[in-house]
Structure formats: C-alpha cells, structure tokens
C-alpha cells in the first residue's frame, strides 16, 4: 500500500459516542496509547469534527444522539471516512430490540468501514484505520 500522500497531512480522527457501553470507546483510547502508539504515524484524536478526516462512531445510536450524529457528520470537511467500531453499531448487537434505537449507524449516516467485535481489539481498530487511509487516498485521487 502506498502510504505517503495522506500521511503527509496526518490522519486525524474524531470519536463520537452514540450511546455505547464504553467498551469500544476505551479500546479506541487504548489504541492511541503507548502500547500501540499510532501517533508515530500521525494518527491523532482531535476535539472537533471540523479538524477530522475520519469519524469513529461507537454505539447503536440511541434516539437522543441520532440528530447530533448527523450534525457532526455534516460538519466534517471532505474527503471524509466514517468508521463504525463495534458490533452494536453494525446491527444493534445485544441491544438489537431496544425501543430507543435510531440506529444502527448505517441507517443514520453512510459508513465506509466496519470494525466488528464486542469490543474489537485495538489491533483491529488500527487495521480499520489503515483501510481508511487507503480509502482516503482513493477519494483524494478522484478529486
């Protein structure tokens, strides 16, 4: 895989919790800490969606958060990639029959990459981010 062009500008991710159990959120933070250390490649968590290239969504999208998720997605600049982390964002997972779900994530915003697992391991999340880089490169070329 050709890593250079996107890495030149570094990949910044924004994390959105749409009602998760915290399991995936913690694994995301774990994936950013020294054991795995993707910051050496420029992958960094940022505080605003306006700075981000990749949106990491965790959780099954509860009713209260659906509109906020749409707004956060709209605030991100193009080209952007959405990653859905965790089984409950893909299908509802254990929460599949809840009355308060507007999700899964794919029903609310378009998702490019799914990382399954409940919770996925940090390695799996990093693997997903690598796929996101490839996708961003393709999007960039199309422009």
């Amino acid at each position: 895989m050709r890593l250079s062009p996107s890495f030149n500008r570094s990949l910044w991710v924004f994390h959105f919790n749409s009602g998760s159990c915290n399991g995936c959120d913690i694994e995301i933070v774990c994936a950013l800490t020294p054991r795995y250390d993707p910051e050496r490649f420029g992958i960094k968590l940022v505080g605003s969606p306006r700075h981000a290239d990749v949106l990491l969504v965790t959780g099954p999208v509860v009713h209260d958060m659906a509109d906020r998720l749409r707004r956060v997605y709209a605030q991100m600049p193009n080209p952007k990639v959405v990653m859905c982390i965790g089984t409950c964002g893909q299908s509802g997972g254990v929460f599949f029959d809840s009355y308060n779900l507007d999700g899964p994530v794919g029903d609310v915003i378009p998702v490019d990459i799914y990382v399954p697992g409940c919770a996925p391991r940090p390695e799996a999340i990093i693997d997903g981010v690598v796929k996101a880089i490839a996708l961003l490169e393709r999007l960039e070329e199309k422009k």
Partner: peptide, 13 residues
Amino acid sequence: GKVHRGVEWMGMR
C-alpha cells in the same frame, strides 16, 4: 439520558 438504551426493558424480555 443521552446513552439510554433501555437495558432493563430488554432484560425483562
């Protein structure tokens, strides 16, 4: 209440 998933309700089923 922003992460309410209705866990108890699901549990009762």
